[in-house]
Amino acid sequence: MYVRLKAFEGRPAARGGRGKDPVNAAMIRHWCEAMSDAHPAYRGPDAVAPPTMLQAWTMGGLSGHEGRSPAYEELTALLDAAGYTAVVATDCEQEYLRPLRPGDEITFDAVIESVSPRKTTKLGSGHFVTTRMDVHANGEPAGTHRFRILKYAPKAKSSGGAGKAKGAPARPRPVINRDNAGFWAGVAAHRLLIQRCGGCGRLRMPWSPGCARCGAPEWDTVEASGGGTVHSYVVLHHPPFPAFGPPYAVALIALDEGVRLVAGITGVRHDEVRIGMPVRLEFQQVTDGEGAWELPVFRAGPGAAGPPGEEG
């Protein structure tokens, strides 16, 4: 089986692909608004596109692209037939060779770069497939985008019985590192701390080691007042995760201070969450086998518009 899979390495996934639109200011503006990126390099007559938009200019939408090779579909069909019917995107890597500017015409070629031997993961056993896309602007090399998926055979669900674990599954703890340790220390003390750049004074969330606007590494913090609104949200139905009971809402909260934070919503049903809904910060205690810890969440409904502890 692996010999057959390896034979796909080096075969094209797309030839002579062309971006549906040239690089343009409108798409750059939408991207920067979604990412809360106000860097001046992305505005004005000499604007460049954010480098991480590299893939955006190659996306074909629902209608796809001309020049697609059947090799990728043949590879996935072979994996499906072997029982590797599930798929999950695992990661991507990008290399930037030159800035992209409004008016640049984008073309690209894609190749199946590698297929891994069979790997065993928590999701199940399968093969990692890496596709490399070489992007050109006006015929010049502009960057490379590698996209990796895992095609796997899902593990059989437990039918219960003597081997079934007792008790509710533990909720995963946040990953704490040197860049965000101060944020989680504040949460433990029931304080939502926002980073403030020591160079230009810009507030930022989530925490990062340097300012995206001026590059200064110095910073201090300000404490959030606790008020905000729902800027956007999703309702999770699938895939189910043992520690959570779908459906449930996860929201992008626009804090009153002008930054945004992804957090859970309480106080209303998942189908009652709305964009623009006022919310109020709360701290939720979570207990697992290692002890108790805190999470910031936001309450909608009665009391959401007033300060903590008051009913609206």
Rank of each mutant, 00 (worst) to 15 (best):
A7V: 02
N24Y: 07
A25E: 13
M27H: 13
I28H: 08
W31R: 02
R43D: 09
P45I: 09
A49F: 01
P51G: 08
Q55K: 03
A56F: 01
W57N: 07
M59K: 09
G61Y: 01
H65P: 01
E66G: 15
S69C: 09
A77D: 05
A77W: 11
A82Q: 14
V87Y: 01
D91V: 01
D91T: 08
L97E: 14
R98V: 06
L100I: 02
P102K: 04
G103T: 03
E113T: 03
E113R: 13
S114E: 15
V115P: 07
R118T: 13
S125L: 00
H127M: 08
M133G: 01
M133D: 00
D134M: 14
D134F: 12
H136C: 13
P141K: 13
T144L: 15
R148E: 14
L150C: 10
Y152E: 01
P154W: 03
K157M: 13
S159M: 09
A162S: 14
G163Y: 00
P169W: 08
N177I: 03
W184S: 11
L193I: 06
L193Y: 05
I194F: 07
R196Y: 02
C197Q: 02
C200S: 08
R202N: 01
M205A: 07
G210Y: 12
G210I: 00
A224F: 04
T229N: 10
H238W: 12
F244W: 06
G245I: 04
V250H: 00
V259M: 01
V259S: 04
T266V: 10
V273Y: 12
R274H: 10
M277D: 08
P278S: 05
V286C: 00
V297M: 05
G303R: 03
A305L: 02
P307E: 14
E311D: 13
